[in-house]
Amino acid sequence: MTVTKTEALPVRSGDDVVRVRQRVRALAVEIGLGLVDQTKIVTAASELARNTLDYGGGGDVRMETVLAGTRKGLRLTFEDQGPGIADIEQAMTDHYTSGGGLGLGLGGAKRLSNEFHIESTPGSGTRVTIARWK
């Protein structure tokens, strides 16, 4: 798999979440995702960006367009240096929340993506990677 383009944006405010959504939409259009797939990856990005902000205390997102053979994809990596997640399985459960949210962010983002990967170390941060393929 080759990375054809890499961009990064900060996720430190509500306005940043809006900017991430707009940039993810533009990249999704660029690789030729259909309208429903665009909407899914932008919604997943919005959930994860908000998690980064609300639970991770802010962080960054790396956005990559990738190519596997002739297949184009969009890969997003959200990273924070926040408190981390002690029990990932529990955090993935729908309607579980450690904050004031609806608890749909992680599970929802996973359902809206073709690939989902999460790593977290309590005390040092969380990294979530998703991908959507054309």
Binding site: V36, T39, K40, T43, L104, G108, L112
Partner: peptide
């Protein structure tokens, strides 16, 4: 929008 409705259901909202 229809695409939003489809996504909303998959999100679980």
């Amino acid at each position: 929008r229809p695409a939003v409705a489809i996504t909303l259901v998959e999100l679980g909202l």
